[in-house]
Design a binder for these strands. Structure first.
Lengths: 140, 140
DNA sequence: TATTGTTATACTCTATAACTATA
DNA sequence: TATAGTTATAGAGTATAACAATA
C-alpha cells in the first residue's frame, strides 16, 4: 500500500502511536482492570488528597459529567472514597482508601513493566525528547 | 494540582496530544463532515485505486468489521464506489468517485489550514522530529 | 446568577464473536 | 480449512443538554 502523504502526517502517526501505547497499557493493566484515565485518577487523588472531582477535569481532559461515572466505578470498587466538603456544601472531596493505596502500588509496578518495554523499544533519549515535544501540544 | 509522575509520563502526554490534535482536526473538517479515519481512507483509496477493504486494515489500524460501516458511509455519501473483484469473487475493489476526488481536494485544503496552525504552534523542526519519533511507535 | 455535581442521551471508536460466500 | 466481507453486540470515550443543590 502506498501511504501517500500519511507517512509524514503527524496526526496520522499520533493516532497510531496512541493506539499502540493504549493497547500495551491495557495489556499490562488487564489483571488490575484499570484504564489509563483510572490510573491517572488514582495518581492525582493520591498526590492531592481531598481534591474535588472538579479539580480533576483539567488535568484529565475529561468533562465533569463523564468523570462522575469513572470515579463512581472506583468508589464502587472501594479504591476511592467521596466525602462532604467542609466549607462548600455543593462540593465533594476525594481520597484514596487503604485498598486504593494498595492497588495504586500494584499499578505503579505494572506501569514500570510497561514503561520498561518502551524504554527498550524506543530508547531513553528518544522518550525524553518525545515528552518534551508532546508537552508543547498540551492545550489543557 | 500536583501532576505527580504524570507530567513526565509519555502515555499521559500522548493521550492529551492526540485529543488536542483530533479536536483541532474536527474543527477544521466540520463543514466537510469527515473524521480523521475517513480522510485517511480517501487518501489511501485515491493513492491505491482498486484496493480492497482488507488492504486498508493494516494502514488504518481499524479491523475489517469496523471498516465496513465507515466505508459504507463514504459510499452512501457518493465519495467511494465498491465493485466486484475480477479474480476473487469474495473480494471487493474500491475507488473514488468524481465527487470523492472533489471532496478529497477540499479536504487537503482544510488539512493545509489545520497543519499551518500546528506549524505556527510547534515549529517545523519540532514537527519533523516528532514524526521521526512517532514512526518508532508504529506497531501496525 | 454562577458553580458543583449529577443524570440522560447520543454518537464514535473499539473488541469479540459469529455468519456467508467464496477460495 | 482458510479467507474476504459482513452483521450484531457490547463496552469505552466523548459531547451536549438539562437539572438540583448551593454559592
Amino acid at each position: 500500500m502506498d501511504l501517500n502523504v500519511l507517512g509524514d502526517t503527524f496526526g496520522y502517526l499520533l493516532r497510531r502511536a496512541w493506539r499502540d501505547v493504549d493497547r500495551r497499557f491495557q495489556y499490562h493493566f488487564r489483571t488490575l482492570r484499570l484504564t489509563a484515565p483510572q490510573y491517572s485518577i488514582l495518581i492525582l487523588v493520591n498526590a492531592n488528597p481531598d481534591c474535588t472531582p472538579g479539580d480533576l477535569v483539567q488535568p484529565l481532559g475529561i468533562s465533569q459529567n463523564n468523570l462522575v461515572g469513572i470515579i463512581g466505578d472506583l468508589i464502587d470498587r472501594g479504591y476511592v472514597r467521596k466525602a462532604a466538603h467542609s466549607q462548600d456544601r455543593r462540593a465533594r472531596i476525594l481520597a484514596l482508601t487503604e485498598s486504593g493505596s494498595a492497588v495504586l502500588a500494584e499499578a505503579h509496578a505494572a506501569h514500570a513493566v510497561y514503561a520498561a518495554e518502551y524504554l527498550r523499544r524506543i530508547g531513553a533519549d528518544n522518550l525524553r525528547e518525545l515528552v518534551r515535544l508532546l508537552t508543547m501540544f498540551d492545550a489543557g
